[in-house]
Nucleic acid binder design. Structure first.
Lengths: 223, 223, 223, 223
DNA sequence: GATGAATGAGAGTTCATTCAT
DNA sequence: GATGAATGAACTCTCATTCAT
C-alpha cells in the first residue's frame, strides 16, 4: 500500500464542499486541524496515529473521518494550513525602509533566521522534506503557500533596491535564493540536524550581519 | 513509547563484538544493511517494516534480530554506514590544483551539487532531517562521518587558498559553511521539495559557476 | 521484561470507567471473560495466547484490547471474576442446622471437598498457585473474593458451634484453617497432582467423615 | 500443538542411553540441568525459554538439544532431578527417638514445614501443580521420588509409634496424609498464595506445636 | 560433541478504517 | 453530525528447533 496512491485524495484541496461551511462544522474542522498539526509535527506522518490525533483534538475517531476522507487527506489539509500560516506572513509584514541596503538585508536575514529556528517552521520543514517523495502534491502546496511566497517577497524586496540602484543583478530571483541559502548556514543547518547550537539573539545577529555583508559583496553596486 | 529511549541501543556503534567478525557473519551483516538501507531510504523509519527489510535483504525476520537488537539499532547502523560511505568520499578524493581559485571553487561546487542531487544522498538528507529529533545520536553520527567531514575537507581547501593569498578570511570554517550553503540553492533546494527541476549538467554547471563567483566576491582578495 | 511490571494495570479492578456500563459493552465484556477464562484455565497464563482467547470468545483480537489494556489486565479480570464466582458461593449458601456438630462438620467437609474437586476450582487453584509470584496482586484478589471468604464462612460456622458449647477453641480462625486443610487430604491432594484417584461420592463421603471425626477430636468439648 | 503430545518424549526417563556416561558428558548434563532448574522454577514451563536456559547453564543452545530431545524432555528431566533431591532427603534423615510421641510429631512437623517454606520446594510445588495436567507423567515422577517418598517416611514413622502403643489407627497411611495436610495450614498455605506472612522460627514452631497436639488428639491412644 | 546463525511460525499489540447507534 | 466499539491486517519481536561448521 503505497502512500503515493493516496495523493489523489487531496489533490485538489481548494474546492471544498461549500455545503460544509456552517459555523459549527468549521469550528470542528479547525479543532481537528489543530490537533492533527500538533501530532503530525511531533511524530511525522507514519508516526502519528489517528487515535492520537482524535484524542489531542478532543473529538472521536469517527469524527475525523466525517471531516476528512482518510489519514492522507487530513495530512494534506494540515500541511496546507501550516504552509499558509507559518512562514510567509512572518516575513511579509514590514517594509524595511529608511536604512541602507546592507542594514535592511541584515534586518531581513535576522527575521528570516529567527522564523526558521522556531519549533513550528523547523518541524514543518522536517516533515515536508521527509514526506515530499510520498506526497508530491504536498511540496507543491508548501511551495505555493509557504516558501515560494517568502521567496517572492524577497525578490520584490531586491527589486526595490535594484530600482534604487544599490543592487545590481540580472536575475533577482536567483539573488533571492542565494540570500535565503546564506541564511541557512550554521544555526539553521545545525538546528535541523539537532546538533548542539547556541541560538541566542547575539548569534542570530552575527550570522545575519554576515549574510548582509556577503549579499552586498555579491550583488552590491561596484564602487 | 518513545523512540528516544531506544537510542542507547546504538549509542556506541563502533565497539562491535569482535568475536563476530567471521567472514560469513560480516557478509550477512552487509546483506542486511544493504536491504535495510534500501527500505529505510525509500520509506523512512516508521514507514519501513522489518518484514520488508528481511524480504529485501533475502533473510528471515529472525536473522535481522540475530544481528541487530531491534529496529532502532538497525536504523542506527544503517545511518552510520550510509554516512561513512556516501558524502565525504565523493568530495575528498581529488586535489583541484592547477587552476585559478575561482575555477577550483566552481569545480568543487559542481562536484558537491552533483553528489547532493543523487538519489542516495538526497534520501539520506531527508531521513536525517526527519528523524533527528527522535534519534539525537543519529544526527551526530551523520555529522561526524558525513557532513562534518565534508565541511572539514572544504575548510582545508579554503586554507590552501588562504595560504596562496587568493582568499582572505578570518573564519575559514564559516566561509566553508557559506560555500556549502550557496551550493544548496535552486537545484538542491527544489529537488528536496520534489519540485520539478531541470538537473542537467548544464544547469548544475550554471549554478556552480554562480557559486564560484559569489564565493570569490565574498572572500576574494580585494584588488 | 517482567510480568510484575504489568500488575498496576489491574491493580484496581473495581473502579472501572462508569461510562462503559452500557448493556452491549457489558455483554461483550462478559463474552470475552468467558472465552478468556476457558483458555487461561486450560493453558495457564503464558500458555494462553490472545489469538486463542479471541477465537474462543468469538471476537477479533482488536476487540480484546478495546476492553482490556493488555494480556495481564485481562488475566487479572479473569481471576477476579472466577474468584468471586466459584468458591465462596458454593460454600456459603446453606445453614446446616438441625444436626449434631459432627454431622454438620461432615456435611460441610463433603460440600467443600466436592467443590475443590470440580474442574473449575481445581484449575483456578493451579493457576493461582502458579502465577502468584508473577502477579502479587492476583493472589490477594483470590484471597479476598475466594478462599478468604470461604474461610470466613467456616470461621462463622465454628463460632456458631462454640456458642452452642459443642466446640471449644481459643482460635476459631485457626480451627477453620485446620478444618480446610484436613479436607485437602487424599482426594484433593492427589487430584491436584493428577494422580489416579477415585473421586466417587462414596470416597468423598468417607474422607468427609474422617474430617468430621478428626475435627471433633481436636476441637470437641472434652467429655 | 499440545504439550500432552510431548509426554512420550520423556515417558521413560530411566533408561538413558548408557553410552553417554562419560564423565565429561555427565558434567555437561549436570550443568544444563542446573541452569534449567533455575529458569524453570523461576519462570514456569511456558515462561522459560531455551535461550535463557542455555545462557544460565553457560552452554550453547545447540548443546541443549544434544543432551535432551526437546524442551519437554528437558523439563521432565529437571522435574525428576528436583523431585529426587529436594523433599524426601530433608525429611528422611533422622530418627527422632528419645522423645514422647507428641514431641516427636511436633519436631517432624517443624522440619516438614520448614522445608515446604523454602524457595526451592515452594517453586517445585507451584510448577508441579501447574503443569500436572499438561505433563501427566511428571506428577507421577514427583510422587514417586518426592512427595510419595516423604509420605512413606511418615507412614513408617507412624508405624513405629503404633508399635509402641502411643498411636492407634487402622489406616496409618491416611493418618500420615492427615499429618501432612495439617502441616500445610496457615504459613504454607499463605506462602503458596504469596500472601504476606511471618515465617519466623517462632511461627513455624507454633504451627508445628498445634500440629502435634491435633495429631495426638486424632490418633492418640484414648486414655 | 559443541556451537550459534538461520529459520518461520506465532506471540502480543497497534492501526486505519467502518458502521450501528 | 458525533460517537466509539469492532475489525483484521500488519506491526515489532521472540520462540523452539535445525544444521553447517
Amino acid at each position: 500500500m503505497d502512500r503515493l496512491n493516496k495523493n489523489d485524495t487531496f489533490a485538489s484541496p481548494d474546492n471544498e464542499d461549500p455545503a460544509r461551511d456552517s459555523a459549527a462544522c468549521n469550528a470542528k474542522r479547525r479543532q481537528i486541524l489543530d490537533g492533527a498539526e500538533a501530532i503530525f509535527l511531533e511524530s511525522g506522518y507514519e508516526g502519528a496515529s489517528m487515535s492520537q490525533i482524535a484524542c489531542r483534538a478532543g473529538v472521536s475517531k469517527g469524527t475525523l473521518y466525517n471531516h476528512f476522507e482518510n489519514k492522507a487527506a487530513l495530512f494534506g489539509a494540515v500541511i496546507e494550513d501550516l504552509s499558509r500560516g507559518k512562514l510567509a506572513p512572518a516575513i511579509c509584514q514590514s517594509h524595511l525602509t529608511a536604512m541602507t541596503c546592507e542594514e535592511s538585508a541584515t534586518k531581513l536575514a535576522e527575521r528570516f533566521i529567527t522564523v526558521l529556528l522556531q519549533p513550528g517552521p523547523l518541524r514543518l520543514y522536517r516533515i515536508i522534506v521527509s514526506e515530499a517523495p510520498h506526497f508530491p502534491v504536498l511540496a507543491d502546496t508548501f511551495w505555493r503557500h509557504g516558501f515560494g511566497r517568502t521567496l517572492k517577497t524577497m525578490t520584490d524586496w531586491i527589486g526595490h533596491w535594484v530600482e534604487r540602484g544599490d543592487i545590481v543583478t540580472d536575475d533577482p530571483l536567483f539573488a533571492a535564493e542565494q540570500f535565503m541559502a546564506l541564511c541557512q548556514t550554521r544555526l539553521v543547518q545545525r538546528k535541523r540536524f539537532e546538533l548542539p547550537v547556541d541560538c541566542s539573539e547575539e548569534q542570530i545577529h552575527d550570522v545575519a550581519r554576515r549574510v548582509g555583508k556577503a549579499f552586498m559583496a555579491i550583488n552590491g553596486r561596484p564602487s
